[in-house]
């Protein structure tokens, strides 16, 4: 039942120009990594890893926002909804079908990008001997958590799509949450846990705490440090972040289904 919708959406994504163009851009950028990396005098390998991870992250972000925000909106805009939502599907499976199709697409794209990036990094590291070994497991973990981060973002885009009639909230709401979610940890720490003793006004502090717990903590998904520099990968961090991802995404999807089920299509 549900697999139908999922396959339908996969077909849509694969035939969509957005995906084709973005995958093209990503592969081009990754191929150029060795050329960019030699710009660094001392840390060619580190730079090649940094660049590869950044390019992958950037393209995945674009994919997540464009596919996530446009999928539901486009169906409404082109009046596909009156044909699809009147099939014997629940509204929930319609939304989840979209979500899982985009999620799988992100995973597959990331897998391809990582493969190309691996070649680019190996090649770059051959150009200048680094004192650090390349730790592939750490690199793969960093990409994997990037994917999880953007899957969570897709859920958010779908939540926005489920309540909005226009394109604006899904696109700009998702972008704002991406930016805010990436910065929330740093800002929160700047305002609260300060060894120097910045005095933040009490109401502001409560507001900051509220927002910090409300918005997705996307900074937590950043495992790039241990992929680039000799920092141990914390297994505790991996587990907590994974749990956080599961719970947060489920809540977002739950809300999306809740609102979408109540929505009318006059």
């Amino acid at each position: 039942m549900f697999t139908n919708l999922y396959q339908l959406n996969l077909k849509w994504i694969i035939r969509d120009r957005v995906l084709q163009a973005l995958v093209g851009v990503a592969l081009l950028l990754l191929v150029l990594v060795p050329a960019f990396s030699v710009l660094s005098m001392r840390q060619v390998q580190e730079l090649s890893i940094t660049l590869s991870l950044s390019f992958i992250s950037f393209v995945l972000a674009l994919l997540a926002i464009l596919l996530g925000a446009s999928s539901v909106w486009r169906d409404i805009e082109k009046r596909y909804t009156s044909a699809v939502l009147t099939l014997p599907y629940s509204r929930g499976s319609y939304l989840l079908g979209k979500f899982f199709a985009i999620a799988v697409c992100l995973v597959c794209s990331a897998a391809i990008f990582t493969l190309v990036a691996a070649v680019a990094i190996s090649f770059s590291s051959g150009l200048y001997q680094s004192s650090l070994p390349i730790r592939w497991l750490h690199i793969f973990t960093a990409v994997a958590f990037d994917v999880l981060k953007y899957v969570l973002l897709v859920a958010i885009a779908i939540l926005f799509s489920s309540i909005s009639t226009s394109f604006f909230l899904p696109i700009f709401g998702t972008i704002s949450l991406l930016l805010a979610g990436n910065a929330s940890q740093e800002v929160f720490e700047y305002l609260t846990k300060d060894s120097v003793g910045v005095k933040t006004a009490k109401p502001l502090l409560y507001a900051a705490k509220g927002i910090y717990y409300l918005i997705p903590n996307l900074g937590a998904f950043n495992f790039k440090v241990s992929a680039i520099y000799p920092v141990a990968l914390s297994s505790q961090g991996v587990i907590y972040t994974l749990l956080y991802f599961l719970v947060y995404t489920t809540i977002i999807l739950y809300l999306a289904v809740y609102f979408f089920s109540r929505r009318e299509f006059p």
Binding site: Q185, A220, V225, Y240, Y244, V247
Partner: peptide, 20 residues
């Protein structure tokens, strides 16, 4: 779901406060 969020967020944010 909300309960599990609270259950996760507590150790999660304390881990974040201490991570490299």
């Amino acid at each position: 779901l909300l309960g599990s969020y609270v259950a996760v967020i507590v150790p999660f944010s304390s881990y974040l406060g201490n991570r490299s």
